[in-house]
């Protein structure tokens, strides 16, 4: 078993705000992340797949193709976007890094060939804060 990781980047605006709560409650729970006019991040996305290398190519999967799938299914939808307002797969969900990682997993799985297993979505919101999702 080999693990292969591709790193991509995107920049986006968001806020942590539960519309079912009052503004005071949102500020109490989410602090400055609840700022109604948004704030933003440079996200780093690590996508790790696993499997056995192909005997003819030596590749687990063509990493250029993996990069293209990530770009088409994720980066196109989130880069330079407002995550709360403009991203269909986060609609109705809280825009936490946790939910974003889960959403990215769900975006990618249907587009990966059957011989490839998605292993981990690792998503950095800042250089010091990241989440990992293993499905």
């Amino acid at each position: 078993m080999v693990y292969l990781t591709r790193l991509e980047h995107f920049n986006a605006a968001h806020k942590l705000y539960n519309p079912g709560w009052s503004r005071e409650k949102n500020e109490e729970v989410f602090g400055k992340c609840a700022n109604e006019n948004w704030h933003g991040h440079n996200y780093d996305l690590y996508v790790t797949i696993k499997g056995e290398p192909d005997p003819d190519t030596g590749f687990l999967f063509d990493v250029k193709k993996l990069s293209q799938i990530i770009k088409d299914q994720v980066i196109e939808k989130v880069d330079h976007r407002n995550l709360n307002l403009e991203v269909d797969f986060l609609s109705g969900k809280m825009c936490s890094t946790e939910n974003l990682a889960i959403g990215i997993w769900q975006q990618l799985v249907p587009h990966l060939p059957s011989e490839i297993t998605l292993h981990c979505i690792k998503l950095y919101e800042t250089p010091r804060i990241y989440v990992e999702y293993f499905g």
Partner: peptide, 12 residues
């Protein structure tokens, strides 16, 4: 380009 998105984007 995409930096002018009316709904904003963001950075660290």
């Amino acid at each position: 380009g995409k930096c002018s998105n009316p709904n904003y984007h963001g950075h660290n």
